[in-house]
Design a protein around this nucleic acid. Structure first.
Length: 502
RNA sequence: GGUCCAUUCGUCUAUCGGUUAGGACGCCAGAUUUUCAUUCUGGAAAGAGGGGUUCGAUUCCCCUAUGGACUACCA
């Protein structure tokens, strides 16, 4: 590795919401850059004017922001190597395309999409390359006069990279080692289209990475097959290629194939960091943020899908990850996306939050249910129920009875726990509680248990009926903790209501 | 079809020739508990197959199988 400052880039194309696999690629780039004291760039690859989706760029930036992946340079923050949006770099690409043309390393081709289509259906496995290019309409097969005339007539053309056949091209990949492929299987890739005066991915990518002084290209495995082409392109320009690292893919949890945008809806979990509304159809796709995930949990979960620190440590903060990450420890094979483990990570991170923090996050959920409680009370509730939830919104399922008295009493529990003597015992209990002035968990427990012992009641019978009366269901934390939070008056009111209703 | 990449419990993975193949999620059982959870303890669960190399292969090589990616004037 050279001693140049590390510079990596995350270069999504704004064709829709950022997919969770893309997020992981961004994360690994970020971790690598930060570990080496380098820079993380954000470049928007919008060279396909057909597939541009409005809002996608903002979505990408907001997603990275939410996750804590900080951009040092690029779209949204600026920098000395701009512009960082490829559609704004037309002139730059044009210059390099011409350079290749002049050097005879690329050529102009006039074949229309229809003509190409015809050839493909004609010849099985047709490939535009050294073996076929002389039979096509291009500046290699046509005379200079013909070419000039065609261009003068306004005929649309593309520029193709002239690949010399029969050469073994070696790609050195940090994760996979040497990957060799023969140039004969490569086709003369389109580098540039006159129609929109824009380059294709391959050319833009190489030119930008070079000009922006990118040292490491860390991207998904889907790019591995075109990496040799990129190597050849660097060679054609006589530039030094950056280091490559091709990450394994994120796979569908069920069956096979890479995780796709539709899997989320199909399997019932988000595949996007943030909720996304399709601007055309209005269809809404769920996001991790809206589903109640903590960004730290998403980061931790994603980091471990395709990489591990080599120890048993599984809970890793962004800082831990920055210190421990290494491309060498990335696995080579695809990782199936395990949503259950994702939930577990969120559970863990919820437990690490302070009660005050969780209370703040829980407040809006309460408000949705029409509850406006004091921060103090919410904090107490959170402290009692947080260990049973995976998501903030589940705090409501586990603790709604702290805020509203039960409207119904769970039938099965009534059958099982509400005995013939229960109404009388509960009335007695209400009296006992009424007399307590120091209404604290410890004190109430002591007094109530003493009463139970004195009367020789069965502890379980009393407590279960008590719980049914207060909570309405056989769930929840320690009874004496619950009644302290809801207060003496409310406790007694609920007991009376239960006696009357059940 | 072609090219490339990959292959350890159901899932994510550890192992850099010699291990009772380890951990985590999930699952099951037990313990704790006034309930439900949590928690704790325990358990079931893996080297795709076949050849080599080697005193010895999960580990190195080859073949097969399987999976995946790519094969556009998309990225």
């Amino acid at each position: 590795m050279s001693d140049k400052k590390v510079r990596v880039r995350f270069a999504p194309s704004p064709t829709g919401p950022l997919h969770i696999g893309g997020v992981r690629t961004a994360l690994y780039n970020y971790l690598f850059a930060k570990q080496h004291g380098g820079d993380m760039l954000l470049r928007i690859e919008d060279t396909d004017s057909q597939r541009f989706v409005p809002g996608a760029e903002d979505y990408i930036i907001e997603s990275l922001n939410w996750l804590g992946i900080k951009i040092d340079e690029g779209v949204g923050v600026g920098g000395p190597f701009g512009p960082y949006r490829q559609s704004e770099r037309r002139d730059i690409y044009k210059k390099y395309v011409n350079q290749l043309l002049e050097a005879g390393k690329a050529y102009i081709a006039f074949d229309t999409p229809a003509e190409l289509e015809a050839r493909r259906s004609d010849v099985a496995n047709f490939q535009y390359d050294a073996s076929t290019r002389m039979s096509m309409r291009n500046s290699l097969s046509l005379s200079k006069e013909e070419v000039d005339a065609l261009i003068a007539q306004g005929e649309q053309y593309v520029v193709r990279f002239r690949i010399e056949p029969n050469e073994d091209v070696v790609v050195n990949d940090v994760i996979r080692g040497e990957v060799t492929i023969n140039s004969s299987i490569l086709d003369d890739k389109v580098l540039y289209k006159s129609a929109d005066e824009l380059p294709t991915y391959h050319l833009a990518n190489i030119v930008d990475d070079h000009l922006m002084e990118i040292t490491h290209v860390i991207r998904g495995e889907e790019w591995l097959p075109s990496a040799p082409l990129h190597v050849l392109l660097y060679r054609a320009f006589e530039w030094t290629a950056p280091e490559f690292a091709h990450l394994p893919l994120l796979l569908k949890p069920d069956g096979n194939g890479k995780l796709s945008k539709r899997d989320g809806d199909r399997l019932g979990f988000p595949v996007f960091p943030l909720e996304w509304t399709d601007p055309k159809t209005g269809a809404i796709s769920s996001g991790y943020r809206e589903s109640g995930y903590l960004p730290e949990a998403v980061i931790n979960f994603l980091a471990l899908l395709g990489w591990n620190p080599g120890t048993d440590q599984e809970i890793l903060s962004m800082d831990d990850l920055i210190h421990q990450f290494s491309l060498e420890r990335c696995s080579k094979s695809g990782a199936k996306f395990d949503y259950e483990k994702g939930k577990w990570f969120n559970h863990k991170y919820i437990q690490m939050k302070s009660d005050a923090e969780l209370a703040r996050m829980f407040m809006p959920v309460l408000a949705e249910h029409g509850i406006h409680a004091s921060e103090e009370k919410v904090e107490k509730v959170v402290a009692l129920v947080k260990e049973r939830v995976n998501f903030v919104k589940e705090l409501w399922d586990q603790g709604s009875f702290f805020f509203v008295a039960p409207q119904l009493y769970d039938e099965k529990t009534v059958k099982k726990r509400w005995k013939a003597e229960s109404p009388e015992q509960m009335a007695e209990l209400a009296g006992v509680l009424e007399s307590i002035t120091d209404f604290t968990p410890h004190n109430t427990e002591e007094i109530v248990k003493a009463w139970i012992a004195e009367k020789e009641y069965h502890l379980g019978n009393i407590m279960n009926a008590f719980r049914l009366a207060i909570v309405g269901e056989p769930k929840g934390p320690h009874m004496f903790d619950i009644i302290t939070v809801i207060g003496k008056a409310e406790t007694i009111a609920r007991l009376k209501r239960a006696i009357e209703t059940i």
